[in-house]
């Protein structure tokens, strides 16, 4: 069978190691049944795979599924056909960004995180949360305040991460990687 060139299906199969295993999906639902986030996804993994096979690429890439994936690999280790489901979720995020088709703000969350790493070389969970929510959900930030105070009083929340010494070296490496990867 030849797949539509440049379709979501074709890209998974040609670009992702072991991506061709997606062809053998039995639609058994073990992935969705095992997924801790399934109930919050607009299409859970099995349903998303049916959409991919049906060629409904726009629905696929606008889905929140892969942004709600917590990368726990529970689906992957249980899949009876050994499909690398978690890796497919990573790949779909990449495809959605590439085509500009994403509807959740999870992308911004990842962006905030990456920005922090590229600035300091290190991250810190709560600083990340604060930054993300201040920018995108100011009201949530207010709700988070009591918890953040609890963390602060226990010395677990810092305002800024430590910047690594050789930030120049790290930037050079990342810039080069982006250049090759583009």
């Amino acid at each position: 069978m030849t797949l539509e060139p440049n379709s979501v299906y074709e890209k998974i199969i040609t670009e992702l190691p072991d991506g061709e295993k997606l062809k053998s999906c039995l639609q058994c639902g073990n992935c969705t049944g095992s997924c801790p986030s399934a109930t919050d996804m607009d299409y859970a993994p099995r349903g998303l795979f049916a959409l991919i096979a049906a060629g409904q690429d726009e629905k696929v890439l606008r889905a929140n599924t892969f942004w709600y994936c917590v990368s726990c690999y529970q689906c992957t280790v249980r899949c009876p056909q050994e499909i690398p489901i978690t890796d497919i979720m990573y790949h779909l995020k990449h495809q959605a960004i590439e085509k500009g088709l994403y509807t959740t703000d999870a992308k911004d969350f990842s962006g905030t995180f990456i920005g922090m790493v590229e600035h300091f070389g290190r991250s810190f969970e709560l600083g990340l949360a604060a930054g993300f929510h201040l920018l995108h959900h100011p009201l949530e930030s207010v709700k988070m305040a009591p918890m953040a105070l609890g963390m602060m009083s226990r010395g677990r929340l810092k305002l800024l991460p430590k910047r690594i010494k050789n930030m120049g070296q790290l930037r050079a490496i990342l810039d080069k990687a982006k250049e090759i990867g583009a």
């Binding site: 639609q27 058994c28 639902g29 073990n30 992935c31 969705t32 049944g33 095992s34 399934a38 859970a44 099995r46 249980r78 009876p80």
Partner: peptide
Amino acid sequence: IRGRAASISDVALTVEEEGKLIVTAEDT
């Protein structure tokens, strides 16, 4: 129910689940 059962657990989250085995699956 069309779906391979994902797991069986005894951790009840609702009154109806108390003392039961809970089968989790996708109803595909």
